[in-house]
């Protein structure tokens, strides 16, 4: 099975305290720790496990600037067989539809049976997978937390729905699935693994090579444009307890007693 996994390089929201610049033009990016979007890492692990079972290969693609290479290489160190970088100044400022249009062009350059995305990006809104499927006119399922290959044409999949219940479906290939966290346990990637793939060539494709009209993507083609970042006016918020650790613990003890928090 030929699988394409779409991965995004994002500021890791678990590792960073995200702050908005004073003029609202962006978040402060200077000291941010970037990594592969959490959901995408599960998608790559799943693709590798499927190929281990049924054969085939895994390609990891990312749209971004030169720095996207770092996450593609990391996912190759996990065991993805090929990388693909989609880089062009014309891609900057793309909305979800623009990203999906670029990915569609990349998908059509290959012979994929299955395309995986993350369910959502840390700085996204859970839209690219569904849009990509619609542009390709392939079937789609979101929030997938189980994949079983049935035969050459169909997959049995689980979707995570409200309450942690699982909706089982059969879906025809080729298809697009967006992957939910927890579907597997992504393997650890050590320095040695990264070194092994350090010199593997990763092809780069721009708008021209992908056959994309630059006016249809990027800021120019975006129906959704970010105006600014802002911090909403703080509400009443929590009363922050002050003092030494011992003093705070003592205050909290009294509060817990008063509110019925101790038995």
């Amino acid at each position: 099975m030929e699988i394409l996994v779409c991965v995004k390089r994002v500021p890791d929201s678990a590792e960073n305290e995200i702050e908005v610049k004073a003029d609202g033009s962006d978040i402060k990016r200077d000291d941010l720790v970037y990594s592969v979007n959490e959901w995408d890492n599960y998608a790559v692990e799943e693709a590798i496990q499927i190929v281990d079972r049924v054969g085939g290969s895994v390609t990891v693609a990312s749209i971004g600037n030169e720095e996207a290479e770092e996450v593609v290489r990391r996912e190759m160190a996990m065991g993805a067989h090929q990388g693909l970088l989609l880089v062009d100044p014309a891609f900057e400022g793309s909305d979800g539809k623009g990203i999906a249009a670029i990915l569609k062009a990349a998908v059509l350059k290959g012979q994929y049976d299955l395309v995986l995305t993350g369910a959502q990006a840390d700085d996204g809104a859970a839209q690219v997978g569904g849009m990509l499927a619609a542009l390709l006119d392939w079937p789609y399922a979101s929030l997938v937390n189980k994949i079983e290959v049935q035969d050459g044409h169909t997959l049995k999949i689980g979707r995570e729905i409200e309450g942690g219940n699982q909706e089982i479906n059969e879906i025809e290939m080729p298809c697009v699935l967006s992957i939910q966290t927890g579907i597997n346990e992504p393997r650890y990637v050590g320095i040695r693994g990264i070194r092994k793939v350090a010199s593997v060539e990763i092809p780069v494709m721009n708008a021209g090579r992908l056959g994309i009209d630059p006016a249809a993507v990027g800021q120019a083609g975006a129906g959704v444009k970010r105006v600014d970042y802002f911090v909403p006016p703080a509400g009443a918020g929590a009363e922050i307890l002050q003092g030494s650790t011992a003093e705070i613990a003592a205050k909290l003890l009294d509060l817990l007693k008063a509110k019925g928090g101790l038995k």
């Binding site: 859970a126 690219v128 569904g130």
Partner: peptide, 19 residues
């Protein structure tokens, strides 16, 4: 919700509408 995420983005594309 989990249904809206499943339906919405693809529907917008097919309608030629903004998601």
């Amino acid at each position: 919700n989990t249904f809206g995420m499943d339906l919405g983005p693809g529907l917008a594309v097919k309608m030629g509408a903004t998601c």
